[in-house]
Design a protein around this nucleic acid. Structure first.
Lengths: 213, 213
DNA sequence: TGTACATCAGTGAACGCGCGTTCACTGATGTAC
DNA sequence: TGTACATCAGTGAACGCGCGTTCACTGATGTAC
């Protein structure tokens, strides 16, 4: 096949243009984005393979080795990116509210929204056999769980919650939210009597000891 | 190698004796038991393969086809067996108590105990992308979730719970329990402030609207 | 301005592996006569 | 009681597949002179 038989710029692997010199790191971002897209598309972390990622981008599988040592390193990068986004969403939503109860609820809703909007990423964060814990974040990075504890504390100190064990009650809220999210995803045939958002509200009110739920 | 070189009864695949005529169904049970053992041993449903099961029992992989149509059918059988055991544990524990609050708590603790004792089986029940729902049990079989709803109702009718929405509150309890169990398994690095059993108690009390938690 | 050359981004063929599944078979067990 | 034979439980070799990873390579891009 002569070069002229192809429209200008079309390459073998799906039309991707080779990066110019010095722009090699762009492929790294493409790989990460492709891995995340695959994860979101079919939900299973196992479908992120070197070959599926390469196919998605339109490159040859070995090209990935210039940017990641092995498959596991791609997964770690996906997990870290997802974690960063989740933390960002929770922290921002909480900080936007001035009323302490509204702040607590906003943080919890942001957490839930992330999980519902990106089930694959949420699952790879908290559905793995061994998951990254909510604590021990990278130093300097805000901590989503501490934000939740602080939000409960703020409610109590404003007289809006009867909680006396902020860490403990925040833990209960986190667990309950996770269960609500996970079962909604998983047991989709169950006749859920109310919306997920309402369930989260109820759980936060009762487990966070907010009066008049 | 002459037959005499082997101790009597020793077979190629790990010493398993061939079943006698009419006892062919015994291999079916062996396959199920092996699949369950593998699942419990390394937690991941993907490690149940025709070959790993065959290895575990000491047979040739194709022998499985006499008893299961394909790999998926083995998984279904494992899931059904696990579900039966879970339901049995919950229903029995609930029925053993006469006090309604004690009955509700006993059922929840039985659920939790099953999940902790058999994490692989619990996970294959409720951690899959598509899981069997708690409702729609096989006809004639007791229903674990209905048991939970009834237990909440019994508490309310005895004046021991302020619940007015038995189904809804039972759902919240189920979700919260699931979250507590799943995160304990998953985020093992988290500094859990209390025991899982205490967490379950707190959740049941607050979500089931039992006074003096 | 032109050209030789180093560099960088990426390729393509090949490897060994474990998998689900198929196929033609074997040989011990029990039964009919 | 003895023997031919049907049946049943299971075997072993082979298939095609997708995978992670390795290896020697290619050819466009930019730079030094």
């Amino acid at each position: 096949v002569s070069a002229g038989a192809r429209p200008a710029g079309e390459q073998q692997h799906g039309g991707r243009r080779r990066n110019r010199r010095g722009e090699g790191t762009r492929l790294r971002e493409d790989i990460l984005a492709a891995a995340t897209a695959i994860l979101e598309r079919d939900g299973a972390e196992e479908s992120i393979t070197l070959r599926s990622v390469a196919r998605e981008i339109g490159i040859a599988a070995p090209s990935i080795y210039a940017h990641f040592a092995d498959r596991e390193e791609i997964l770690h990068a996906v997990i870290n990116a997802a974690f960063d986004e989740l933390v960002e969403a929770v922290v921002t939503a909480t900080a936007e509210q001035t009323d302490p109860v509204a702040a607590l609820l906003a943080g919890c809703h942001a957490y839930t929204r992330f999980a519902v909007a990106r089930p694959g990423q949420y699952r790879i964060l908290f559905g793995r056999t061994r998951a990254p814990s909510m604590e021990a974040p990278r130093p300097g990075r805000p901590d989503a769980f501490q934000t939740l504890v602080d939000a409960v504390a703020a409610c109590a100190e404003a007289g809006r919650s009867d909680s006396t064990d902020y860490f403990g009650d925040a833990t209960l809220i986190w667990m309950a939210m996770h269960g609500a999210i996970a079962l909604r995803t998983t047991a989709s045939g169950f006749p859920w009597p109310s919306s997920l958002e309402d369930d989260i509200d109820d759980m936060v009110h009762r487990l966070g000891r907010l009066p008049d739920s």
